[in-house]
Amino acid sequence: MRIFSAVAMFSLLLFLAGCRQDMHDQPKYKPLGESRFFADGRDARPIPPGTIARDELNDNDSFHTGAANGEFLDAIPLKVDLNLLHRGQERFNIFCSPCHGRTGDGNGMVAQRGVKIPADFHTDRLRSVPPGYIYQVIKNGYGAMGDYGDQIPVNDRWAIVAYVKALQLSRDATLNDVPTARRAQLSGGNQPPLLGAPR
């Protein structure tokens, strides 16, 4: 009987040996994790120069630089449709609106809290800049604004350009710019009237 209980106790103790976290914490690399192998302690390695990510072939053409033959592109090199504008609106609100504001007049929340107030998009100077100029400002930065090339991929940059152009148009539009079929909405048809619109 003694021997039996001793064996039972010992086998119970064996269960404790299972209480380890080896499966939880495996010796493998996870994104932006720690490495004891590399000198800088990072498992994420710097990208070797010249590396091209899939779908991001940057062969230095005008689509990637926003310029051709030393001139900024005068047109957006993508099909501009409602999908692109919606994408541009979404990306603008994520990346640009903190400083530029949702309407582009430069009074975003972060601008109000102390970064250099960005330029108002609705000035003659900025209304007349070509799309390629806006593109390269997003890609390379401008003045106090850092570059957004790492945060915003190429297609999204052009989508934002399209949306910025639409924002500028919207400020300057007259009733004649609105398709006849849509005009009813402006004077309180299917949707609530716009602020300041005649009732």
Partner: peptide
């Protein structure tokens, strides 16, 4: 407070398994 979208910093959350910890540059 500032209304910054999640994706401003967590840039890869829509296309990757990992949501990304923003680079110091951000």
């Amino acid at each position: 407070g500032l209304g910054i979208d999640c994706r401003y910093c967590h840039t890869t959350v829509e296309k990757s398994s990992f949501a990304n910890i923003p680079a110091t540059k951000i």
